[in-house]
Design a protein around this nucleic acid. Structure first.
Length: 947
RNA sequence: GCCUGAGUGAUGGAAUGGUAGACGUGCCGGACUCAAAAUCCGGUGGCAGAGAUGCCGUGUGGGUUCAAGUCCCACCUCAGGCACCA
């Protein structure tokens, strides 16, 4: 064996080679086709690189390296997202400037990444905290401001009392601070806000132009939360004023029996004069404001509320008077802050109505069975009797006549459902000592009676009874029913399994359900103009038409996406480049005066009064107005840490430009980002902010594409050895540095590519890592078998061609685990051979190079196989060479494998059939059977169907 | 609750509707060694059988098909996202 350096030395050697030769530096003007890969730039935290970073960096590196070998001009840059609280905290503690802490961390991160041999173009590196970079972040903020897309408003914002800063909706979802987990409180504060909600629709439709993973698209769509419905005005009896609500179900308007407004709804203060129980209401309002942490986190759904005494609404369609409540289950920041409540068809309204004893009017009947023409109408009941002692229900087993059913029957004229049920129970079973428990809303059932050749539409009411005692009276059955069924008490499980009749099983389930609201489709009842309709869309449209005609309401679309609160009361962020002048108001800093630099001070403590730490630095705050020159004050809030990452991919195209944020030429050349990888945790926030930002730039003509990212993929997390999330407290954190030192960067890379499906999470395994190192050892050993030939060995040619195809396609599809597997198979195959050719070996090394770049380069060099792999072409395969002349195919008899036969590629179907039938084991299974047909799928399978 | 995914050996995971379990790990047996590690060779879904082979087997229950891990329906479980959003 040729003497080799240690793995670590080899890796260092090639990393230096790539650096010295600018191997991965992308050119901004090239005849080659461009390709732009990006992994999310990290926040350089003090704890260093995580093995999770290694997974995604290696994956995209593998793709980028292969793409370069295929002749593309690849841009694969890296930088740092370094504004943010941890650096600030560290600085506060150690009385240094956060930029020093950041510089230190970047150094560590960069060293670690370099040790992995990731092919980043370091010539384009920058940090969001570089004044040369944040100058342009500020410049773009001014563009937002100039286009009226940024406004200052006193807003009730999410305030984290621990971090002492405001948060966006995205950063405080679930009512807790994303960073520290504290319960977020609402606080009124003047904030800069970007009109992101204007882009809600574009952010949804734009997704159609992208190729994002489905789960990412859904996450975004969910977050934006589009809903279509109507705004409807409800008159208030006592005053000349209307209460506007938003609803997605105007078809249920006839079922509205009360209204609810949010505790913060302005009407409360506005009409406090005529509200009789103001004290109670104010009391309630305060309580909801100070919900305990426990209640927030557990999202206790127990409904609370207070009826407003003095205000009564009028249902605009029934003209009935209905009460108005305040309750915290209605949010002020969505819709109109008021709802119409339909307890029969909405779970929350149902719960509220049950608690406050409000009338429930069903307007939609559930439908079972299939509708036919010329149906005869009937009223009927389904009665369920429960034997609590034995936990069983009474059923009638009609055997082949109708299977297992409950007691059913037709209602006679002038008979209530309850009367019918009691009568039928007595007639069919004889039981009389029963107690009525409840009755549920009717079900609209359709069925066809074959014995009478007639279709029925029945309105069936379900009733539940409890058995008190076994006392029976003799049943008096009709002649035709006698002896046709058995009375059987059975468990719930048996009922679920054996009761097939849709009406009966649905009734049973509804009777046992805790909440008797129905949110599905059905037949409209009690609904005036809508009565009889069975199509929800049609009902909604008909009602909308009516509302518009009467001037009561109109169509409306709502989004959950809110405007983006763009200010933080922190030191370590981009200063907002605006100046407040007594005469001129808010004035942007002139472009030539950008960037507005952060001052070099050593005190950054956030203040308790909610002011930014910058506010205390008077020398910084006091300035002159860019417009009139008079004394003025700077805005002291800074941008959120999402700002810098909202456009950074653009800067990579032209990172050194000091005239523009990026040149037109660079924008046109690099175009859209082709492949963007990042964590699932950024699928909503970062990705929405970035898309919004880019769409705005597009709309004002600054970038050529509306959608910035063609493809977005998210990697699965790497878990600790036990399958749990890696964390310091659990002590299961794997430090990539240690792995690199012990097994080498190539083994680590190879392992992380082999660990499993890239999109799914995977648990770390030391053993499996060893396996990958063993694989690389095998590849190294292969050099002992080299002969002098520079053609493929004939015995390997086929598998090499197959492997080229497999690896090429797998890398393109991010199926790295099977790519590695194919390379292992090839390596095993080569290991079995006496000798291998130079071309055999070089092809293997080339295919493996994107995954394990150091060792393959070294083996290529010391065995004099050719130019460095990073400067060579990706191998191609010959489709013809892949075809097997002979193939073993399976023979099945009635779908079961009974033998295998060897078939030549050009065997006719007849020949294959003959071979199959002559197989001894196949013959054995055909004994005493008649062949019905023989299915021959060439090159795949033979299936003999026999009886 | 709603929306995504996913359920396959001891284990990570492979399988254009066509021989389930590739490849890796682990385990068992063997070689080398004084011994161990490393390395190499063989075996490895379950049950029955000396073996040939047979039966069973991809979360559960149905269905479509000559043929289902794969397609359809219902359900169960797990993970992720959203969540009192009207």
């Amino acid at each position: 064996m040729i003497k080799m350096m240690t793995i670590n030395d080899i890796e260092k050697k090639w990393q230096k080679y790539w650096d010295d030769n600018n191997t991965f530096v992308a050119k901004n003007n090239s005849d080659k086709e461009k390709y732009f890969y990006l992994v999310e730039f990290p926040y350089p935290s003090g704890s260093g690189l995580h093995v999770g970073h290694v997974r995604s960096y290696t994956a995209i590196d593998t793709m980028a390296r292969k793409k370069r070998m295929m002749g593309y001009n690849v841009l694969f840059p890296m930088g740092w997202d370094a504004f943010g609280a941890p650096a600030e905290q560290y600085a506060i503690k150690n009385h240094i400037h956060p930029k020093e802490a950041v510089a230190e961390n970047i150094k560590t991160f960069k060293g670690q990444i370099k040790d992995l041999g990731i092919s980043f173009d370091w010539s384009r590196e920058f940090s969001t905290t570089d004044p040369e970079y944040y100058k342009w972040t500020q410049w773009q903020f001014i563009k937002f401001y100039e286009h009226d897309m940024a406004y200052k408003a006193k807003k009730s914002i999410n305030w984290c009392p621990n971090c002492k800063t405001g948060l966006s909706n995205e950063d405080s979802s679930g009512g807790t601070c994303e960073r520290c987990g504290s319960v977020v409180v609402q606080k009124e504060k003047d904030q800069w806000v970007l009109r992101m909600s204007d882009y809600a629709e574009d952010l949804i439709t734009g997704l159609d132009e992208t190729d994002f993973q489905e789960r990412i698209k859904t996450a975004q769509i969910n977050w934006i939360g589009k809903s279509t419905g109507a705004e409807v005005d409800f008159k208030i009896k006592e005053i000349d004023e209307k209460l506007k609500v938003y609803t997605t179900r105007p078809d249920t308007l006839y079922g509205v029996t009360f209204m609810v407004i949010a505790p913060e709804h302005p009407y409360i203060d506005l009409y406090s004069g005529i509200i009789n129980n103001m004290n109670e209401i104010i009391d309630y309002r305060e309580k909801t404001n100070f919900k305990t942490e426990f209640e927030r986190l557990n999202m206790t759904k127990e409904k609370t509320g207070v009826r407003i005494d003095g205000l009564t609404a009028i249902n605009p369609i029934t003209n009935k008077e209905i009460p108005i409540y305040i309750s915290d289950y209605v949010m002020m920041n969505y819709g109109t802050g008021a709802i119409m409540a339909v307890p029969a068809h909405d779970d929350r309204d149902y719960e509220f109505a049950s608690k406050f004893n409000i009338e429930i009017i069903p307007v939609i009947e559930q439908i079972t069975g299939e509708q036919r023409e010329n149906e005869e109408q009937k009223n009927s009941i389904v009665a369920v009797i429960y034997d609590e002692e034995n936990n069983k229900y009474l059923t009638l087993n009609w055997k082949e006549l109708g299977g297992r059913l409950f007691i059913g029957g037709t209602r006679k004229d002038n008979e209530t459902a309850l009367e019918t049920a009691v009568r039928e129970i007595k007639e069919e079973t004889g039981y009389t000592d029963i107690r009525f428990i409840k009755e549920i809303s009717p079900i609209n059932h359709h069925y066809f009676a074959y014995n009478k050749n007639k279709a029925y539409e029945i309105e069936s009411i379900g009733l539940l009874f409890k058995l008190i005692s076994d006392k029976k009276e003799t049943n008096n059955l009709d002649e035709d029913e006698k002896g046709k069924f058995e009375i059987e008490w059975v468990s719930r499980e048996i009922i679920e399994k054996e009761v097939k009749d849709e009406l009966h099983i649905t009734t049973f389930r509804n009777l046992l359900a805790e909440n008797n609201y129905y949110a599905g489709d059905g037949k409209m009842v009690n609904s005036g103009i809508l009565n009889g309709l069975t199509n929800k869309k049609e009902s909604i449209n008909k009602m909308l038409e009516y509302l518009e005609k009467e001037g009561i309401g109109y169509k409306k679309t709502n989004y959950k996406l809110q405007d983006w609160i763009f200010t933080r009361q922190r030191f370590w962020g981009e200063p907002i480049p605006l100046v407040c002048c007594d005469e001129c108001g808010w004035v942007p800093v002139k472009e030539e005066d950008l960037p507005v630099l952060l001052p070099d001070v050593a005190e950054y403590e956030p203040t308790d009064d909610g002011e930014s730490p910058l506010a205390k630095i008077e020398s910084w705050v006091n300035t002159t107005c860019p417009k009139c020159g008079k004394p003025a004050k700077r805005e002291t809030d800074t941008m959120p840490n999402w700002a810098g990452s909202s456009w950074y991919w653009l800067r990579y195209m032209d990172p050194k430009n000091d005239k523009e944020f990026v040149s037109k030429e660079a924008l046109n050349y690099w175009g859209q980002l082709d492949w963007y990888n990042g964590g699932m945790e950024h699928a909503t926030r970062h990705l929405l902010y970035a898309r919004f930002w880019n769409q705005f730039l597009y709309n004002i003509g600054l970038v050529p594409y509306k959608e910035p990212f063609k493809t977005r993929v998210a990697h699965g997390m790497i878990l600790g050895e036990g399958g749990e999330k890696m964390s310091k407290s659990k002590g299961n954190v794997i430090n990539p540095d240690d792995v690199v030192k012990k097994q080498g960067a190539d083994a680590l890379r190879c392992y992380e590519m082999f660990i499993g499906d890239y999109e799914k999470e995977a648990a770390w395994s030391e053993q499996s890592l060893n396996g990958c190192r063993r694989f690389l050892d095998k590849v190294i050993k292969l050099q002992d078998k080299l002969n002098n030939s520079d053609e493929y060995s004939s015995s390997l040619e086929k598998i090499i061609n197959k492997t080229i195809k497999k690896v090429t396609e797998d890398i393109d599809n991010m199926k790295f685990n099977t790519a590695v597997s194919a390379l292992m198979i090839l390596t095993n195959e080569m290991t079995d051979k006496e000798e291998i050719s130079q071309k055999d070996y070089r092809t293997l090394l080339t295919l493996l190079n994107p995954i394990a770049p150091h060792i393959t380069e070294e083996l290529n060099e010391i065995n004099h196989l050719g130019n460095p792999l990073c400067e060579s072409a990706w191998p191609t395969y010959d489709e013809e060479k892949i075809i097997d002349e002979e193939k073993e195919i399976a023979v099945q008899v009635n779908g079961k494998l009974r033998g295998t036969i060897i078939c030549a590629i050009n065997d006719t179907e007849e020949e294959i059939k003959e071979k199959a039938l002559s197989d001894s084991n196949v013959q054995k299974h055909l004994e005493e059977k008649e062949i019905v047909k023989v299915i021959v799928i060439k090159n795949r399978i033979v299936n003999i169907v026999a009886k």
